[in-house]
Amino acid sequence: MTRKMWMRGTVAAVSAAAMLTLAACSSEQAPSGSSEETASGEEEMAEGDDVISIGFSQVGAESGWRAANTKSIQDTLTAENGFDLSFSDAQQKQENQIQAIRSYIAQGVDVIAFSPVVESGWDPVLQEAQAADIPVILTDRAVDSQDDTLYESFIGSDFVLEGEMAGEWAVEQYDGEGYKMVELQGTTGSAPAIDRKEGFAAAIEGSDIEVIDSQTGNFTRTEGKQVMEGFLQKYDDIDLVFAHNDDMGLGAIEAIEAAGMVPGEDIKIITIDAVKDGMQALADGKINYIVECNPLLGPDLAEIAQKVVAGEEVEKRIVVEDLAFDQEAAAEALPDRQY
């Protein structure tokens, strides 16, 4: 008897908790629900009433950038625009992505698109897709396969160029002052981390900016903050921080403020991505320069998917154009930013 009552009590408590969570998420929906019109996506409305079924496997939701990227894809590949989107989140695991792609092959979708978590190990599953005659489109990140017939097109930013743009600005602004710089790298071994580091290093070569240390902050705020705290204990004379994404830069700002210094003045900060929080910090003067990495790949993906299904030729590599912002440009651009 008492046991039953206990159980009843617990069930009630658990369902109360579930309701609380649900209440929290429905109230969350209000602000973000007011989604922007995806103007560019609308133009490419499918002429026929043939619906294109597309399976998309996303890396995860590790950063603000990724969230904006997901939103762009979900908002563009809608039923109104002639798509039937199956979306899956791989939570940063390659095996989840391979599984998702296999299930899309089994479902017989028209197009498979995905952002590979890592560069290598994709040949077998891509060959399966090819055998099933399903075209594959890569977004954001590339694969290092030798056989480039395995995918139709790769849509994404040029990470090396992003690093170069950041480095060139640093040289333009700070060369000749003997700046000492620390670098917050992205996830070890990931394409953006490798390429941005390489691009930046190439751009500052020959200048007197000296990279005194470089550690990974795993693209997250928490680790960015922790590593920056360590740097601040280790060196007294840091002048410049280059973070491979905004989130780590935002973490670094917290660490710099906690050390009693003014981010953007005592220590200059350059980051890449230009997500909303980053742009806000830039407009507030806490970051000095941000190179954009455009996450709005949805419209491009829609266009390429339509062309591929229609049997048209598409370019193997589509480079998304990236802008760059200094503090004034950020303050101007901020009100109209979609992400």
Partner: peptide, 13 residues
Amino acid sequence: GIAMLITEGQITT
């Protein structure tokens, strides 16, 4: 998964 539901997959700040 529950936490993702609450934040809707975004990073809430």
